[in-house]
Amino acid sequence: MHELGVVFYVIKDVANVAVENKVSTVNSVTLEIGEVSGIVHDYLIDCWNWARKKEPCVENAELKIETIDAVTFCENCEKNYPTVAYGKICPHCGSDKTYLVTGNEFMIKEIAVPED
């Protein structure tokens, strides 16, 4: 359900980019998705394959997903660590004064269109 709503945002944005660049067909759409953004890739692709049929310019477009690793920074010992393995507590010093540096992204990186 969550992924479906998100897919409609992507389609709307891609359709706008297509209009701005005067193209009528998109071959593929590449997303950059952070590891802890809460998006399930398989669901997203299923939703995409259903929803794309409703928008002519992305009807045949393939969805590609690139994952951005989640990294957390510890303010106490000033070191980075992988978020998925250790969560909120720093594995180096045990502090909870930590914040996410990357991993929350949900971006449209690029689209591929036929060369004219």
Binding site: V6, D13, V17, V23, F106, M107, E110, A112, E115, D116
Partner: peptide, 18 residues
């Protein structure tokens, strides 16, 4: 096969909403 052109978007999906 027709060649493809890449258009850089680099846009957050929630930016329009913001």
């Amino acid at each position: 096969m027709a060649n493809v052109r890449i258009i850089d978007v680099h846009q957050g999906v929630f930016e329009a909403n913001d």
